[in-house]
């Protein structure tokens, strides 16, 4: 699970090491990556929105 989160974060930044990439593609199903990606995108949007709301208040 930690590996999946790390890879999604790497994807957010756009930088991934070749070693981790190889490891990710050992995984049998893509679903953990997709679900984690969607959830973390939502979290990111919420964080940005609340920072913007805090800055505007």
């Amino acid at each position: 699970m930690l590996q999946v989160i790390k890879s999604v974060l790497a994807a957010f930044l756009g930088v991934q090491s070749e070693k981790n990439r190889q490891q990710d593609f050992q995984s049998r199903s893509p679903w953990p990556f997709i679900v984690t990606g969607v959830v973390m995108t939502l979290v990111f949007v919420l964080v940005v929105a609340s920072v913007a709301r805090w800055a505007a208040s």
């Binding site: 930044l13 756009g14 930088v15 991934q16 090491s17 070749e18």
Partner: peptide, 13 residues
């Protein structure tokens, strides 16, 4: 060499 993850992270961050 092909890649250097540390440098890439730095120039993105």
């Amino acid at each position: 060499f092909h890649e250097n993850t540390t440098v890439e992270v730095i120039w993105t961050a």
